[in-house]
Amino acid sequence: MMSSCARASVAVRASSVTSTTSKNMCGARRGAVRACASNTTNARFALLFDCDGVIVETEELHRLAYNGAFEHYDVRIDGERVDWVVEYYDVLQNTVGGGKPKMKWHFNQNAWPTSSLFPTAPTTDAERDALVDALQDQKTVFYKKIVEEVAEARPGILELMDEAIADPTIAVGICSAATKAGFEKVVNSVVGVERLSKMDVVMAGDDVTRKKPDPLIYNLAREKVGLPASKCVVVEDSLVGLRAAVGAEMNCVITPTASTASADFIGEGAKAVFTTLAGVKLHAMFPNEATEPNFKF
């Protein structure tokens, strides 16, 4: 129950948040991100990046945004405000992929809460879905504001991405479990529209019916780039993402965050673990004339 967790202060207040609108790209529908100017011809390999935790260390930003949404709607279990402290969120993010699944898992494990939306805890699937949908929408508003103010790329990530984009034999993509609105804010702000327009595949959690650790998003990415799984390398930061990649029979390398560093990634099938991607070079992973990716460097 949440009563066993110490309360943490929430850094985001409803009064400080303003909504933003995602930019269109290459004639895509409003809110959509898609590639339109890929440089790839006769791809030998594919390099697929997760977003949260890989491109940007966003998990603390997500945690604060969830807590902001819980406060906004006065979400309570047994009279105590729901508040995800750091230690609990570290476990949660390594257990469940995607925002709505996280909340449903938490409420199912503890109790469905009361709120300003439902003064009596919801009991039907429709009511529970409505509560989670509203919380996710408000969380996204908070999250986009935080990203706009503080998000920055992890060391080495954009350099590796640029090398891959420039190599016509490497297909490049981003595959995230995050809700599209929050995902777009991160990639538009940090990766940039120009890089995104040159990618072969860009997918968010809303683009699939089952989120990580289900391998669906990576199976669909493989179909889009037209390569067998053995030719695809996924960059992830968590066990949830690793399990999705392994489930798709893809090679996976890990660049862990502080909250995921203690996991046994190699034991779960990762090919390599890099504390940072700074200094990791594309040609070392995909040597000229190689028929398989290389991870011994």
Results as ranks from 00 to 15, higher is better:
V253T: 14
S22P: 15
F265H: 11
A177K: 04
K231M: 07
K180T: 15
R34I: 11
T257C: 15
A221H: 08
A32M: 09
A46I: 05
G269E: 10
V201H: 06
T18S: 14
I55A: 01
V147L: 06
A8Q: 14
D83C: 15
A221V: 04
S116L: 12
G205V: 05
K211A: 04
E249G: 07
C51T: 13
N94R: 10
K211W: 03
A166D: 14
T209I: 02
S176V: 03
K145W: 09
F265D: 12
V253R: 03
F274K: 12
A121E: 06
E60C: 04
C51K: 09
S19K: 12
K224R: 15
P287Q: 11
M161D: 03
A221E: 10
A178T: 15
E163F: 04
S230P: 03
K224E: 13
G182F: 01
S197A: 15
D200W: 05
L48Q: 09
L239E: 10
T18P: 04
S230D: 11
G247L: 02
S4H: 12
A245R: 01
V190D: 11
S116Q: 11
F70V: 04
E71Q: 15
M250S: 10
C36R: 08
P293F: 01
R34D: 09
L48I: 15
L64T: 04
D74Y: 03
K145A: 14
F274D: 06
Y88R: 00
A130W: 05
K23T: 13
A248L: 05
M203F: 08
V91G: 02
A134D: 08
T58G: 02
H72K: 14
P293D: 13
T124K: 10
P119I: 07
K212M: 06
A270V: 03
S189H: 11
F183H: 14
T291C: 09
A121C: 08
C232A: 05
S115V: 00
P287M: 05
R63Q: 03
L220S: 11
L92G: 00
I254Y: 02
L242M: 10
V235D: 03
M1V: 06
A134Q: 12
A65W: 04
V280N: 05
K271L: 05
A121G: 09
K185W: 05
L158I: 15
G173K: 02
E249A: 14
T41E: 12
A35S: 14
V191G: 05
S197H: 07
A8G: 10
V54W: 00
A290D: 11
G267C: 09
R7Y: 13
A11M: 12
E163L: 03
Q93K: 15
A248R: 02
A111I: 00
M199Y: 09
G98A: 08
C51I: 07
Q136L: 06
A153D: 09
E289W: 07
V82L: 03
V253Y: 02
